[in-house]
Structure formats: structure tokens, C-alpha cells
Design a protein around this nucleic acid. Structure first.
Lengths: 210, 210
DNA sequence: GATCCATGTCAACGCTTGATGAATTGGGTG
DNA sequence: CACCCAATTCATCAAGCGTTGACATGGATC
């Protein structure tokens, strides 16, 4: 335990350590089970310092829960190959999760917390709804645009839920490219296929095996 | 407030009232935010009585969290019309949720709690994985059977998440038959379509986003 | 080098939580 | 009727929670 008062310069930035610790714990435990004292302990800091910087536990949440990726960037350029946009969406999202562990942890935290706390639920709803909608704007035809984007959201959300949150074995252990091959056509269908009223909305495999 | 000691006969069964209250609160608030005292108050009972019957808060959870529907029954007979099994799955699941409010609340609770507490997470994983697998057994071809069932689980789970938990507008407000028409073919595809195997064409990533 | 403020710890408060043990009542059984 | 056990409340506990105010320290400013 360091002595009282301001620390000499040189050491790590305590504010940053608090944010890191909070992000880790929130993502592992959710909002309620994460205690200020635990965050303080992991950040090697007194608990009161958290209040000094972030006022509240909610303030800490807001600060720690930054959206770790810009959906617009992630999903940019899909209209350049509209026929494989579905596979690209799945591949990029999975690539995002499988890549940097820090990003993955933040996303996982977003989901975990979002399912237990209202503030983050808004962020999550926003991500799965409006953000994806605008990001997919150019690829998606005008009719049922909002519904199409939301359907993509449900499929991708369900995938992430099964693979990373619940850990359903068949989905958790599948190699990413298998998931891309399996789910890509579905996303493609939601993006550009016949939805609703149209008869015989079949999902055609581009490589024609049946 | 009733006096001490055993109640005279005739009134409602306190044990049952506790279970009802617990199911309601767990489904509304999740595990952590549901307090024993709140359950006791709603059941019009002293908090200690809950411990008398269910020992623990976890014991109460286990008792209150009965699976409100038998997946085998819900998904029975799909093989009699295998070509429309996908639509049938979506229609039956949505029908289940849109029907009895009590069932709906229990299912919602299962999801809410399952995403915040390990015990219920197991139940949920089981439901979305193994249970659905056996229920779909006859319809699903042998190859990738577990994966197919799990994929159905992700799509259905994502749908329920978007519609009932997060409340994404386009999905929340859509009439059930529109969702059946939109998602049914996807489930059908997961059940009987061509999955994986085919080499996937790649799409160029923008801005070096992995 | 005196002053001021951001930074940091310490000690504690007030509250809620899950849980426990004793006390009390009523029904069932002999 | 006497006895026992289940049912039920009461009073209370220890722990943990988020939060607060007071205090100490060091860097920056003039």
C-alpha cells in the first residue's frame, strides 16, 4: 500500500488502471456482481479514488464501457461485392472477436452488462439496431430496410450469444470459416433475399450442392 | 401481519405463493437484484420462511426456475411435413411466447437469469443445444446434426433476445407471421440445407480491420 | 519558496443483504 | 388430552455494499 497523498511521477496512470480493471471485471461478472472494492483492488488503488474520477458506479460503467469498434468501419465497403456481403459480415464480426483479446473482452462485457443493466442495454440495442442499419444501408434494398437490418442483428447476436456467452459446444468449437459458410448465406438472405410475402423464399447456395 | 406460529388452514399455500413471487421477481430483475425480502413481501410471508423451505437463495432459484415447456412436445411431429419444418419451428416458438403470459414470463425469466447466473446458464445452454437437438432429431440429416441444431438455437435465441429482451423495434413490433415468413426459411436452411464445406469467396477488408 | 489544486489514502458511516436461532402456534397422532 | 413436529414469525447477526469527508502529499504557478 503506497503512502498517502499524490504519488511521485513515473508509475502507471491510476486512472487508466481503474478503467482497465473495471472493464475486465464488468465483462466477467456483469454490473451488480462487480464491486467498487474489487475494481480498486485490481487497479491497486483506494476505492475512494474511483469516486474521485468517476463519481458513481454508473459513471465508472459509462466510462469503461466504450464501444470498442466502429460498426461503420467494420462493415464498410460491403456494397463492392454485394453478392458475398453476407459472408463478409459474418467473417468480419467473427474476425473481430477472434482477434484482439482486449476487444473481445470489451465486447463480451458489453453484452454481459447490457443484459443486466439498462444503460448498457441501450448501447446494445443501438448497436444491433440503428448502427447496423446505417452501416448496411447501401447493401440493403429499400423495402423492409429496418427489418432486414434487425434480422441480421438477431442472427449475429444469437451467434455471439451461443459462441461466446453461453458456450454451446457445437457453436463454440466450430472453426470460424465453417460458421461463415453456414451463416453467411443466411445473412445474405436477410440482406437481399425475399422477405415476407414473397413465395418460395429459398436460400440458394452459391456453390450449388444439395 | 399474521401472528406467529402455524397458520390456520384454509388460506392460500404460502409455499406456492413464494414460488410464484420468486418466479415473477427473478424474471423481472434477474438473480442479483431480486432480494429475499422482496420475494417475501410479495408472497406476504416472512423472509425466514423462504429459507425454511428452500434453504438458499440458489435453492429458491432452482425451485422457481422450472422449464415451462417440454421442447420435445413443442417440436413434435415436425417430420410429418419436413419441407415446412422451419416455418413450423418459428411459428410454434413465437406462438408459445405470444400465448400464455405466465409461460412468457417464465421463459423471459429463464433467459434473464440464465445470462447472469451460472446455474440457469446451464439450463439455457441445455435448452438451446441438447434439447433442441433431440427434439429435431428426425428432421435433421445425420451430417452436422449437432451443428445444425445449434445453429437453429442461435437464430431462435437471437430472435427471442431481440424481440423480448432487448426490444429492438423492427423485431419487437413485427407481426408474428411476418417473422415466420422471414425467419422460417432460414431455420429450414439450417435443418436441411447445405451447410459448410463449400469454399467461401472472400471479400476485401477495408482499412485493415481484422 | 509560498500557495493552490489535483491526486491519493484513510476511516468510517448508513444501509442492505442473506442467513440464523429462538420463540410460538396449530395440526396430526397415539 | 398429551405429545410431537411442521409451519411461521421475530429479532438479530455478520458481512458487504456504495459512498463520503477529512486529511496528506506532490507538482505547478507566480
Amino acid at each position: 500500500m503506497p503512502p498517502r497523498g499524490r504519488r511521485p511521477v513515473g508509475g502507471p496512470d491510476p486512472r487508466e488502471q481503474i478503467l482497465t480493471a473495471a472493464a475486465e471485471l464488468f465483462s466477467e461478472l456483469g454490473f451488480e456482481r462487480t464491486t467498487m472494492r474489487a475494481v480498486a483492488a485490481r487497479a491497486d488503488v483506494d476505492a475512494a479514488l474511483i469516486h474521485h474520477y468517476f463519481v458513481n458506479k454508473e459513471g465508472l460503467l459509462s466510462a469503461a464501457l466504450v464501444m470498442p469498434v466502429d460498426a461503420g468501419v467494420l462493415l464498410a465497403g460491403l456494397d463492392q461485392d454485394p453478392e458475398h456481403a453476407g459472408e463478409a459480415v459474418v467473417r468480419r464480426v467473427l474476425g473481430l472477436w477472434e482477434g484482439d483479446p482486449e476487444t473481445r473482452r470489451r465486447l463480451l462485457g458489453l453484452i454481459r452488462v447490457g443484459l443486466s443493466h439498462d444503460y448498457a442495454a441501450g448501447v446494445l440495442r443501438d448497436l444491433l439496431g440503428r448502427t447496423i442499419l446505417t452501416a448496411l444501408g447501401r447493401v440493403v434494398p429499400d423495402d423492409h430496410r429496418a427489418l432486414r437490418a434487425a434480422l441480421v442483428g438477431t442472427q449475429m447476436g444469437g451467434l455471439l450469444l451461443g459462441r461466446y456467452v453461453l458456450g454451446i459446444p457445437a457453436v463454440r468449437d466450430a472453426p470460424p470459416e465453417q460458421l461463415v459458410a453456414a451463416i453467411g448465406p443466411v445473412v445474405q438472405h436477410y440482406l437481399t433475399g425475399a422477405i415476407g410475402g414473397a413465395p418460395a423464399a429459398s436460400i440458394n447456395q452459391p456453390h450449388g450442392t444439395a
